[in-house]
Computed example of a mutant assay.
Amino acid sequence: MKLRLGTRGSALAVAQSSQVARALEAAQPGLTVELVLITTTGDALQQGGAKPEPLTKAIFTKEIEEALLEGRVDLAVHSSKDLAAAMPEDLAIGAFPVRASWADVLVSRDGLEAVLAAPGPQIATGSARRRLQWAERQPVVRFAALRGNIDTRLRRLRETPEWDGIVLAAAGLARLEPELDGLRVDALPEEWMLPAPGQGALALQVRAADARAREIVACLDHAPTRRAVEAERAFLTAMNAGCDIPLGALAVEAGSGLQMRAAFYPPGTVVARRAEAAGDDPLELGRRMADTMGR
């Protein structure tokens, strides 16, 4: 039995897709999972290609979803934070495996404490969400533009002595395990750096009508991760936000329900609207959080 898994060709995407492939093969004796590498618009952009207009989250998923809809692959593995708020109606998330760390981290030479104490440190990140939240915590901070894969970003940090650090997702570092000699990695507290919705979680996407693929991937579905990511994505959808809208959200298990925190920067503002709420229904909680934000 064979399953074709569509994935981006970056080192991180291949690493996390390979981990999923091995887990599926281990759980399903006789199953072979073949990786099919697909170049996305986002990959071309990271390599210096023209920026599409409008810029949406789909830049990292569109071509893979097209391959899935056309039957060229049977399964796709995405970083949940890269998924657009609205998916094609003929596709579904067959599984959310156990979530890795949702945190953002500072990678630096001297460590977070030293950077926060510095008079005007320079932090490299291309994320508006990360820039705005850091600037609220440390108004004297300066920023530098940064894009590319993890290895490229680490190389640029080492080559640019005026940079005090770069901000990356903890989950990406854990999955790729790059060389970090001479560098320190510090998690950024959620109190002032909320992650992107779905950060740290993988999404296994299948055709909604493909009962075979849905049955195969179901063994990797982790109910607490699904509930948390569904709440965060419901917030994202209700806010009608693309990848250029600075917002963060984090839902965690709390008793029999969820506790959720979110931050949103309306256009032209530098101070976030922040809110916290609890609930049992992930979709209702996410929508209620958006209502609180005054979407």
Rank of each mutant, 00 (worst) to 15 (best):
M1K: 01
K2F: 04
K2H: 10
L3F: 02
G6N: 10
G9C: 12
S10Q: 12
L12S: 00
V14K: 09
Q16W: 12
Q16L: 14
S18R: 14
A27P: 10
Q28T: 05
P29L: 11
L31V: 04
T32V: 13
T32I: 10
T32K: 09
I38K: 02
T40A: 09
D43L: 14
L45K: 00
G48S: 06
A50T: 12
K51R: 14
P52A: 04
T56H: 08
I59W: 07
T61P: 08
K62W: 11
R72K: 14
K81D: 14
D82E: 15
L83F: 05
A85W: 13
A85I: 09
M87S: 02
G94H: 09
A95T: 07
W102L: 03
V107Q: 08
R109Y: 09
L112I: 07
L116E: 15
P119M: 11
P119A: 03
A124R: 05
S127C: 08
A128F: 05
R130A: 07
L132V: 03
L132T: 01
Q138R: 09
V140W: 04
V141M: 10
R142Q: 15
F143H: 04
A144T: 07
A144E: 15
R153H: 02
L154N: 03
R155G: 00
L157T: 03
L157C: 02
P161A: 08
W163D: 10
D164Y: 01
I166W: 12
A169K: 07
A169W: 05
G172W: 13
A174L: 15
L176F: 03
E177P: 00
L180G: 00
D181I: 05
R184F: 02
P189W: 11
P189E: 15
A196W: 03
G198A: 06
G200S: 04
G200T: 09
L202T: 00
L202H: 01
A203R: 09
A208F: 05
D210K: 04
R214E: 11
E215L: 11
V217S: 06
A218Y: 07
L220G: 00
A223L: 15
T225Y: 10
R227H: 04
E232N: 05
R233V: 06
L236N: 01
L236P: 01
T237R: 15
D244C: 02
I245D: 11
A249S: 14
A249D: 09
A249I: 08
V252Y: 01
E253V: 13
A254P: 03
S256G: 03
G257Y: 08
Q259E: 15
Q259H: 10
M260N: 01
M260A: 14
M260I: 05
A263Q: 13
Y265S: 00
G268W: 13
E276W: 01
A278D: 13
D280A: 10
D281F: 06
D281T: 03
E284D: 14
L285C: 04
G286T: 03
A290T: 06
D291E: 15
T292S: 12
R295A: 13
